[in-house]
Design a binder for these strands. Structure first.
Length: 343
DNA sequence: CTTCCACCGGAACCGTGGGAAA
DNA sequence: TTTCCCACGGTTCCGGTGGAAG
């Protein structure tokens, strides 16, 4: 009989969507965000917000933290990740769902404009906040116009890219001219270390990890809190599985590269069969020319006895892979080549 | 200078699947 | 049930771009 020596006390603490009770190192942004949304409490129009900054800087977390505070004022907020929910229809559908509108429709058979009308009617009497995470993944910016012309709806747009709105419809841009622009800079190494300490304190059994290990993780994750927290989670899980009762340096060393790969693997897994073939070809041939890519792809399909998709669709897929940052497209027209990013 | 070539990407279109009204 | 409606993913069509070849 083995004695179980747990290391992890609370798994939720290490989940991507965990919101700590006390959010540190983002005081300025939290205050701005609160001010922007404050009018809602007095049944007035809030100020739209545009949040930008590199991954793992607390953009999503901070938004959820502040909008969470509005719950006690019974102001609902709708969080939408535009990676998963990217069509105008689906976004509206989700908003209605959260607003508690009973929808007899499941998915098909209802016109988008009908959903829009329903939403506008509902928001006549009630205000709400809509958070659009990864806005640049929307496949149609009409939805932004829909939102911006809906009274009592305050938008929080989140993106890695500071310039997403630059080529949006001018009517959207003008509405966003008065929006609050909030920049989230990369965390410093010591800030990451402190965030890890906070998580360890509530998520791990006391004393199972040395401070210096937390600092080691912090130092090797270049300001990305999500990767840092995932590293800690993976190391803790390994210690739990090995039943060592504490996290060793070896656990840390193994966890660091795994955490970075995890994100990539997740997106590769979500690709369809054709996209995976294309990805593999690019991976095995550096700087592939489009014509070579098409022919290799067709050959591969023949070998697998599957119907190849058309070139135009391949181009659409390539576009998607570039957005996922799984591949890099360099050069224009004739000189276009595709390759896999370094590291 | 004109034609050709390889590629890009917008727009319209089409078949499919599934809910809803008749 | 049948008929209609509609979102969605993929396809068809095609104009544009810019260097190379004639």
């Amino acid at each position: 009989m083995y004695e179980d020596i747990p290391v992890i006390r609370n798994h939720e603490v290490f989940a991507d969507d965990f919101i700590p009770a006390q959010l540190n190192h983002r005081d300025g942004q939290i205050k701005s965000l609160r001010d922007d949304l404050k009018p809602l409490i007095d049944k007035e129009q809030g100020r739209h917000v545009f949040i930008y900054g590199p991954p793992g800087t607390g953009k999503t977390c901070t938004s959820m933290y502040v909008t969470g505070e509005l719950k006690s004022e019974s102001i609902p907020s709708v969080y939408i990740n535009c990676w998963e929910t990217h069509s105008r229809f689906k976004v509206l559908y989700k908003v209605l769902e959260v607003l508690g509108l009973k929808l007899s429709i499941h998915n098909k058979g209802t016109a988008t404009h009908e959903l829009l009308e329903k939403m506008k009617k509902k928001l006549h009497e009630k205000s709400c906040v809509v958070i659009l995470d990864e806005v640049d993944q929307l496949d149609d910016d009409k939805i932004l116009y829909d939102f911006v012309t809906t009274p009592n709806l305050t938008l929080i747009l989140i993106s890695n890219n500071e310039t997403v709105l630059a080529d949006a419809d001018p009517r959207i841009r003008s509405r966003f001219a008065s929006a609050d622009n909030l920049e989230f800079k990369q965390y410093t190494t010591s800030e990451i270390a402190e965030i890890l300490r906070e998580r360890a304190e509530i998520g791990l059994v006391p004393g199972v990890i040395q401070n210096s290990y937390l600092e080691k993780i912090a130092a090797s994750t270049s300001g990305d809190a999500r990767i840092a927290i995932n590293s800690l989670r993976i190391a803790a899980k390994a210690a739990d599985d090995a039943n060592t009762g504490r996290i060793t340096e070896e656990h840390i060393n193994k966890a660091l590269p795994t955490a970075e790969k995890e994100v990539k693997k997740k997106s590769i897994d979500s690709l369809n069969e054709h996209q995976q073939i294309i990805y593999k070809i690019i991976k095995s041939t550096s700087d592939v020319k489009p014509s070579d890519l098409y022919s290799s792809y067709k050959k591969e399909c023949e070998a697998k006895q599957m119907e190849p998709i058309k070139d135009r669709t391949i181009r659409k897929y390539l576009d998607k892979l570039v957005q996922y940052k799984l591949i890099i497209a360099s050069g224009e027209n004739k000189w276009r080549t595709y390759s896999i990013p370094e590291f």
